[in-house]
Amino acid sequence: MFKVKVFIVILTLFFIACNKKSFESSEELLEYLQQPENGYLYSKTINDVDFSILYKPTDLLVDQTLSRVVTKSKVDSLRTKYNEYLYFSLSMSKNNQELLSNVVGNKQRFGAMVNELAFGMEQKVHLYTKQKDTIAMADYIYPRVYGMSGATTILFVYPRDERLTNTEVMTLTIEDLGFYTGEVKFKIPTKIINNEPGIKF
Rank of each mutant, 00 (worst) to 15 (best):
G111E: 10
N95M: 09
T181A: 11
A136Y: 09
T181F: 08
V184C: 03
K107M: 13
Y87I: 05
I154H: 01
V184G: 01
T190G: 05
L177G: 06
E196W: 04
I141H: 15
L172G: 02
S77W: 02
G182L: 10
T165F: 01
L177Y: 01
E84C: 03
N102D: 09
K187W: 00
Q64F: 09
L117E: 03
Q123A: 15
D63W: 11
L78V: 03
S91V: 05
L99V: 09
V145C: 05
P159R: 04
P143N: 12
T171H: 03
H126I: 08
N195D: 10
K72N: 13
L99I: 09
T80E: 10
Y146P: 03
V103Q: 05
P189S: 13
L155A: 03
F179S: 03
L127V: 11
Y128L: 14
I154T: 11
V103M: 06
F156L: 08
R163G: 05
Y128R: 15
D133N: 13
Y87M: 06
L86W: 05
Y82M: 05
V157S: 01
P189G: 12
K187Q: 13
F119I: 04
L78H: 01
N195S: 12
M113W: 02
I193F: 07
F186W: 06
A118W: 00
Y87L: 06
L177W: 01
F179D: 00
P143E: 14
T165W: 00
F119S: 09
P189Y: 14
S67A: 06
E162R: 04
A112E: 12
G182D: 13
K185C: 00
Q108H: 08
V114T: 07
L86G: 04
K124L: 08
H126F: 11
Y146G: 07
D161N: 15
I193D: 02
Y142A: 14
E84M: 09
A118H: 08
E183T: 15
M137D: 11
K94Q: 13
N166H: 14
D161E: 09
Q97M: 12
T152R: 03
D161F: 02
S91P: 00
Y128P: 05
P143S: 14
V145T: 13
L100Q: 07
R144Q: 14
M148Q: 13
Y87N: 03
K124Q: 11
V125G: 01
S91F: 08
Q108V: 15
V169E: 13
N96L: 12
K130V: 05
K191P: 00
T165Y: 02
V169A: 01
L177I: 08
V70R: 09
F110M: 12
D176A: 13
V69H: 11
K187T: 09
T190I: 05
Y158A: 04
L90E: 03
N195K: 10
T190D: 07
S93R: 11
Y140T: 04
N166F: 14
N95D: 12
F88N: 00
I192L: 15
E183K: 15
E162T: 06
N194L: 12
L155E: 10
I193Q: 03
